[in-house]
Design a protein around this nucleic acid. Structure first.
Length: 276
DNA sequence: GCCCAGGTATAAA
DNA sequence: TTTATACATGGG
């Protein structure tokens, strides 16, 4: 990978592999990247980024090389060798091999822990367009303005609100869950930075102290917000896949990349439901 | 109108 | 420990 700063202010990231913006931003791990034409615009760590793919390069329209190296390279998990992970997973099962290759452009983003936790609370029993709408409203109403959008509101901001003030979100029964999570996080009852380093099962139990956080949301928060690649969010699709392809076996056969295997298998199973 | 959405809390078997 | 149902809202 090589970063080239052009005179017009754009950056070109050359020789980048396993990076397909469509797969990364529309695979359901993040709900905040907005596509317009071929461009994706997103916000993290109070900064915006606008990028698009051009052949095998990624063009960044609004970031300095310094910010890219300090913030975005880590956010996009560019130091992880996904090709190596795919090679490891491919040997486990022929269907997993196909899934890995079909979705080889996915990387697991290092999102901010609170944003991921809150987003996946909102995602429960919900569809992606509406999840996006609720999160967008949450950021617009309570986040800080950035150049091209809004930051995700801190837990302390949301903790200072109440159900009435959350009504414009139209989050339904999830509003009380959002509030409980915000309070527990901002009052220090739940410490996300410590949970990120705990053994997986302890981390899960801690997160599940929040009302409305079950095993699925906990694992999503761990995988997408704390980059715990061994977390394994299990929904109805993944259960079907496991039952069909790996009967009687646990997700540990993918260790230590259960979460990445889950991503490949989830999308493959949605694309080929007849095989399961 | 109807079914369903990358689930969870709750109650009952 | 497993299985059924309500939950708020709106996309398709």
């Amino acid at each position: 990978m090589k970063i080239c700063e052009l005179p017009d202010g754009t950056l070109t990231i050359k020789n980048i592999t396993n990076f397909d913006p469509g797969q990364i931003f529309d695979c359901g791990q993040s709900f905040r990247w907005v596509k317009s034409q071929n461009e994706y615009t997103g916000t993290a760590h109070d900064k915006d980024l606008i990028l698009y793919q051009s052949g095998s390069d990624i063009i960044i329209k609004n970031s300095s090389a310094k910010d890219f190296e300090n913030i975005w390279a880590d956010y996009f998990d560019l130091k992880t060798d996904y090709n190596k992970i795919i090679n490891n997973l491919s040997g486990i099962h022929p269907t997993l091999d196909k899934a890995c290759k079909m979705y080889s452009g996915i990387r697991i983003l290092k999102q901010e822990p609170w944003e991921a936790l809150c987003s996946f609370i909102i995602s429960q029993n919900n569809n992606i367009p509406r999840i996006k709408k609720i999160i967008e409203t949450l950021c617009r109403l309570f986040g800080k303005k950035t150049n091209h959008g809004f930051s995700f509101p801190d837990a302390s901001i949301i903790a200072s609100l109440n159900l009435k003030k959350l009504e414009p979100l139209k989050a339904g029964f999830r509003a009380k869950y959002i509030l409980d999570a915000a309070k527990k996080v901002s009052f220090g009852e739940i410490k996300l930075d410590e949970i990120a380093k705990m053994p997986l099962n302890n981390a899960r139990s801690e997160l599940m102290k929040i009302v409305g956080v079950g095993s699925k949301v906990a694992d999503c928060a761990l995988l997408y917000g704390m980059h715990r690649l061994e977390a394994f969010p299990e929904d109805v699709w993944i259960k079907k896949v496991m039952h069909t392809l790996f009967p009687g076996q646990s997700s540990n056969i993918f260790a230590p990349y259960q979460g990445i295997a889950q991503q490949y298998l989830y999308h493959y199973s949605r694309m080929h439901p007849d095989e399961f």
